[in-house]
C-alpha cells in the first residue's frame, strides 16, 4: 500500500515539539552539559569528564540523602496504600453520602503544597500548635524542631494526611466499576467478605492501584515543598531528602557540576524504580 506522504503534517506536530523541547529536552540537556563540566563563575566552563558522577556515587552525603529518601517513600507507601484501600472500601457506593465523602476526600489534594507545609508547621509547633500543645500536655515530650524522631513522625503524618486521598479516590473508582453480578455470584457461591476482597475487589482494583502506587512513588520521591516548609530538612540533616539536598548543592553552594550529576543520578533512580514497580505489578497481565 502506498501511503501519501503529507509534509504539512509536521506543522501540526510542531507546537508540541517546541513545547517539549523547551520544557523537557533543552533543560535536561543543559543539565547533562553541566554534569560533565567544571565552572569557575563568569560563565567559564571546562571539561571535567565523569568526575562529578564519581563524586556523587561515592559521596557519603548522597548515600545518606538517598537512604532517607527511600525510607520516606517506602514508609508512606506502606501506610497510604493499605489505608487508602481500607477507606475506599468503607465509603458508601450510593446515596447522598457519596458526594460528601468524595468532596471531603478531595480537599487535602486541593490545598497548595507550601500551604500544607505551613499548616502542619503551625499545627505541630510544640508550645502554640494544637497538636504540639496537646501532645506535650499529655506528657509526651514532643518537639519536631529539635528531635529527629518527632520530625520524621510529623513529616510522615503530613504526607499521609495530604496524599492518602489520592489512593482513596483511585481505589474507589476501581471499586465502583465492579459489576453488581460479581457480588451476587460471590453471595451465591458462599464467599466470605475476605474472599470477596481477595478474589474480586483486589484483582479488579489492581490496575488503578498500580497507577496509585506509581504516582505516589514518583511524587514522594520528588517531594520538596512540604518538608522544606515544615522542617527545612532539619533538625540537622535528619529530614534532608534528596530534593532538599539537591537544592542545597545547586543553589546554596552553587556547585553546578555536582548538582547536575546528582540530578541525573536522581532521575535515573526514579526511572529505574518506576520500571521495576511497573514490571512487578504487571507481570501477571501478560498471559
Amino acid at each position: 500500500m502506498n501511503k501519501t506522504v503529507n509534509q504539512k503534517a509536521w506543522l501540526f506536530v510542531l507546537p508540541v515539539l517546541v513545547l517539549v523541547a523547551f520544557n523537557a529536552i533543552i533543560p535536561l540537556m543543559t543539565v547533562v552539559n553541566y554534569s560533565v563540566q567544571e565552572t569557575f563563575g563568569n560563565n567559564v566552563f571546562s571539561w571535567a569528564g565523569i568526575i562529578w558522577f564519581e563524586e556523587v556515587l561515592t559521596s557519603q552525603r548522597f548515600h545518606a540523602s538517598l537512604g532517607r529518601q527511600l525510607f520516606f517513600t517506602f514508609t508512606i507507601l506502606a501506610i497510604e496504600v493499605p489505608l487508602g484501600v481500607i477507606i475506599a472500601l468503607a465509603m458508601p457506593r450510593k446515596g447522598i453520602w457519596v458526594s460528601v465523602c468524595l468532596v471531603l476526600m478531595a480537599m487535602p489534594l486541593l490545598i497548595p503544597w507550601n500551604v500544607v507545609g505551613a499548616i502542619w508547621n503551625i499545627f505541630a509547633l510544640p508550645q502554640i500548635g494544637m497538636l504540639g500543645n496537646l501532645l506535650n500536655g499529655m506528657g509526651i515530650d514532643y518537639n519536631f524542631t529539635r528531635q529527629p524522631g518527632d520530625a520524621w513522625a510529623t513529616l510522615i503524618a503530613m504526607d499521609v494526611w495530604h496524599w492518602t486521598s489520592l489512593v482513596v479516590l483511585l481505589a474507589y473508582a476501581g471499586l465502583v466499576s465492579i459489576p453488581e453480578a460479581y457480588y451476587q455470584a460471590a453471595k451465591i457461591d458462599g464467599a466470605s467478605s475476605w474472599a470477596i476482597f481477595r478474589y474480586i475487589q483486589l484483582p479488579k482494583m489492581k490496575r488503578v492501584l498500580t497507577i496509585a502506587i506509581l504516582l505516589r512513588f514518583m511524587d514522594s520521591f520528588n517531594i520538596y515543598t512540604e518538608p522544606f516548609v515544615l522542617t527545612g530538612g532539619g533538625p540537622g540533616n535528619s529530614t534532608t531528602l534528596l530534593s532538599i539536598d539537591l537544592v542545597k548543592v545547586a543553589l546554596g553552594q552553587f556547585d553546578l557540576g555536582p548538582a547536575a550529576a546528582m540530578s541525573l543520578v536522581y532521575f535515573l533512580v526514579i526511572l529505574l524504580l518506576s520500571w521495576v514497580f511497573y514490571t512487578l505489578m504487571m507481570r501477571d497481565e501478560e498471559q
Partner: peptide, 27 residues
C-alpha cells in the same frame, strides 16, 4: 441455591479448577 448470571462472572486470579471448586471450598 445455585444461580448462573447473564454475563460471565469468573474469579480472574484463580485457575479454572479453583473457580469451579470455589463454591464447594467456601462450604
Amino acid at each position: 441455591i445455585a444461580q448462573v448470571f447473564q454475563f460471565p462472572v469468573v474469579y480472574d486470579t484463580m485457575t479454572v479448577f479453583d473457580n469451579l471448586a470455589f463454591p464447594l471450598r467456601n462450604r
